[in-house]
């Protein structure tokens, strides 16, 4: 007979697995990497949780583990990203992605944010968390969350304005290129 915690894992994966992978995908920008991250987080969380946990409580732990793993991987990859050409990030996002059009653009814009800015934006606007909840989940102060959100929104506005300006220039240009 399966242990209680195994039933909770099965229920969590069945009911919330897609949402967890989607959350990790928004953070990492890559569904395959996100899937690995979620599997790691689930195995680590249920490898230490004792019995008596319900799905909702377990999901909160798994989400925190996903955020920790994402920020940890981002920190380890920081050195590489400093020297990698910017186009490398865009290519990685495009390859294998099923996103098209505006959705692809939105995913690409997220990848232009720093890891903590991205995590704050996803938690605030996709997961509808409060600033205090984000602070707890990421282990940073509420003030820092507000700062990351403010900086990220400013960056996203700037990216969108540049994209719109480029689009307008292309529309005015007879050949479609400027």
């Amino acid at each position: 007979m399966a242990a209680r915690w195994e039933l909770v894992v099965a229920e969590l994966v069945a009911e919330r697995g897609d949402a967890l992978v989607r959350y990790a995908t928004l953070l990492s920008g890559d569904e395959e990497e996100a899937r690995d991250m979620v599997q790691d987080a689930l195995a680590a969380t249920f490898g230490r949780l004792r019995n008596g946990f319900e799905v909702e409580q377990a999901e909160a732990y798994v989400r925190r583990a996903i955020a920790n793993r994402f920020l940890d991987r981002a920190r380890r990859g920081q050195r590489w990203r400093r020297i990698a050409p910017l186009v490398g990030e865009r290519e990685r996002l495009d390859s294998g992605s099923t996103l098209t059009g505006e959705r692809l653009d939105m995913a690409a814009r997220l990848q232009r944010l720093s890891p903590r800015e991205r995590a704050c934006i996803v938690l605030r606007y996709d997961e509808d968390r409060t600033v205090e909840q984000i602070a707890t989940e990421l282990g940073i102060s509420a003030g820092a969350v507000k700062r990351y959100l403010s900086d990220a929104l400013a960056k996203l506005r700037g990216i969108l304005e540049r994209e719109q300006g480029r689009l307008q220039r292309e529309e005015r240009s007879p050949g479609g290129t400027s």
């Binding site: 994966v13 897609d18 992978v21 989607r22 995908t25 928004l26 996100a34 899937r35 959705r103």
Partner: peptide, 9 residues
């Protein structure tokens, strides 16, 4: 609006 994953865990 961004869609969910293509395959399951």
């Amino acid at each position: 609006e961004l869609p969910g994953p293509a395959s399951r865990l």
